[in-house]
């Protein structure tokens, strides 16, 4: 931490190496657009570089980075909604196309040793989950992403979102139930 606060380049490179996948992953799951997610993840790190002196070490560094990421995501979503509105194009249209591409191009999913029919079913299910997740409201989506995808503790989620424990738990439950309702038609045979 002291090397980071002294501004040592090697410390920042290590920080990027350690956190790039999780920051990018959170941006991608929130924005559902690869190019926007990469752009935003870079902005997050630029912001971390600029503000590292203000990090008071009252929480984990990773939690602080997540908080910055979450705030950037919400701001970017607001901006994208406004831009889509000005162009009279629903934001979901661009997302659906990108989500389908992302899932099918996923090298990890593609390399699993499975029966081909099962692999296709699995990828279709992944694609459905991502689509339905992208269709949820931001406050519901972020909790499912933080808890069920990133597997953060309730304490970390409270720290990142600034919500009280009871609010996190009740909102997360409503979010999961909403996702379950959306997923119901795709889960019949699983």
């Amino acid at each position: 931490m002291s090397a980071l606060k002294r501004g040592e380049e090697a410390a920042f490179e290590l920080l990027v190496r350690l956190h790039q996948h999780r920051v990018y992953g959170l941006c991608l799951r929130m924005l559902a657009d690869r190019a926007e997610a990469e752009d935003l993840a870079q902005e997050v790190f630029i912001s971390v570089f600029r503000n590292i002196q203000t990090f008071r070490e009252e929480s984990l560094l990773s939690t602080w980075i997540y908080r910055i990421t979450r705030n950037h995501c919400l701001n970017r979503l607001k901006f994208l909604r406004r831009r889509a509105h000005e162009r009279q194009q629903p934001l979901e249209d661009t997302r659906q196309a990108d989500l389908a591409g992302e899932s099918l191009a996923d090298p990890v999913a593609g390399s699993r040793l499975q029966r081909p029919d099962r692999a296709i079913e699995g990828r279709e299910l992944e694609s459905r989950v991502l689509q339905e997740l992208a269709g949820m409201s931001e406050d519901h989506r972020e909790l499912v992403v933080l808890r069920d995808l990133e597997q953060l503790t309730y304490e970390e989620i409270q720290d990142i979102t600034g919500l009280a424990e009871g609010t996190v738990k009740s909102r997360l439950h409503r979010a999961r139930m909403e996702l379950a309702r959306r997923m119901a038609p795709h889960l019949k045979d699983t």
Binding site: Q20, H21, E38, V108, E126, V129, L149, T190
Partner: peptide, 16 residues
């Protein structure tokens, strides 16, 4: 709910 959470938690990790 259980099947949904299994599907969500089974999503592959994303890499930058």
């Amino acid at each position: 709910l259980e099947r949904t959470l299994r599907a969500v938690r089974g999503l592959p990790r994303v890499e930058a």
